[in-house]
């Protein structure tokens, strides 16, 4: 039983990072109905930026992180300007395919520049385990969880109470009306890409710290699709709980059925959500049945 609780806690802890990635996807989806399949690759690229800054150019951890953050924001704005904005008004699936193509480009370029092997980024999280009573939690996972949750909660609060957040919700509700009321919708879209770059950068660095850094790090974001579906596509608040649920389920199926089942758990869950409640747990009813 103790074993089960330990696995559950570790699972929920890894769900914190999922929530962070999912937040980046949902914010963009809300502002422009663009589903960003390149999120995982943006995250992976940020981790490589961090690696380059701290290891190759031996900057400090803080300076290195700032460089990585600046780099990711620049890349996100570049993607938005060059590839996403020309697609405004085009069919939904065409835009999805563009983001898919961008992911492929980033993965390829990273593979060419840094090679396919695992890299080790400098440890920013302490390894010393955290004990909850007599339950043992690996140090990196626990600390990554704490950081991710603080940032997710902070961003959710920011998007709820700040002017930018209100403008974002206005643009999501009705872009044309928002535009005529003086909200610069294009800037809102660019703003959501910046948010995605920030969450991507933080989650990328955390992820590369818990695991190792490879060009396939971004594949994790495909598991996050299940988080987005479960939480509801347009529910910013839902990501946190959905992230915990998915992380927990992954860990528990890994324990009960064998680790190989971990990789398909999110997809089976996503299919079940599609079958039973396509809006997700917290999404508002924007499903168009036909």
């Amino acid at each position: 039983m103790n074993f089960f609780i330990e696995y559950s806690i570790v699972g929920i802890a890894s769900g914190g990072i999922y929530a962070l990635i999912a937040l980046g996807i949902i914010v963009i989806f809300k502002s422009s109905k663009t589903f960003n399949f390149a999120m995982g690759e943006m995250m992976m690229l940020s981790a490589y930026f961090f690696y380059a800054a701290t290891v190759t150019y031996s900057l400090g951890l803080v300076a290195g992180f700032c460089v990585a953050l600046a780099g990711s924001i620049a890349i996100a704005l570049l993607i938005e300007r060059v590839a996403i904005r020309p697609m405004l008004g085009r069919p939904f699936i065409a835009v999805v395919m563009v983001t898919f193509g961008i992911g492929s480009i980033i993965r390829g370029v990273v593979g060419m520049v840094w090679g396919p092997n695992d890299l080790q980024i400098p440890a920013i999280l302490s390894r010393s385990p955290v004990m909850l009573g007599d339950i043992f939690i690996p140090g990196k996972t626990a600390r990554a969880f704490a950081i991710a949750v603080v940032i997710v909660v902070g961003l959710i609060a920011y998007l709820r109470y700040s002017r930018a957040g209100v403008a974002l919700r206005a643009a999501a509700a009705d872009a044309i009306t928002a535009y005529s009321m003086g909200i610069d919708v294009r800037r809102i879209i660019a703003f959501t890409w910046i948010i995605a770059a920030i969450t991507g950068c933080i989650s990328g660095v955390l992820m590369a710290n818990v695991n190792t850094l490879t060009p396939h790090l971004g594949m994790v974001a495909l598991n996050v699709l299940a988080v987005v579906i479960l939480g509801g596509m347009n529910s910013i608040g839902g990501v946190l709980i959905a992230g915990f649920i998915i992380g927990w389920l992954e860990a528990v199926t890994g324990l009960m059925l064998g680790t190989e089942y971990r990789e398909i758990t999110p997809y089976i869950l996503a299919l079940m959500v599609l079958l039973v409640r396509p809006t997700g747990l917290f999404g508002t009813k924007e499903i168009e049945r036909i």
Binding site: I105, G108, G111
Partner: peptide, 17 residues
């Protein structure tokens, strides 16, 4: 292999746009 991925992606994006 990464070169192939890059070119696939570039082609997809540029043809779509």
């Amino acid at each position: 292999v990464p070169l192939r991925e890059t070119v696939f992606g570039l082609l997809m994006v540029s043809f779509l746009i």
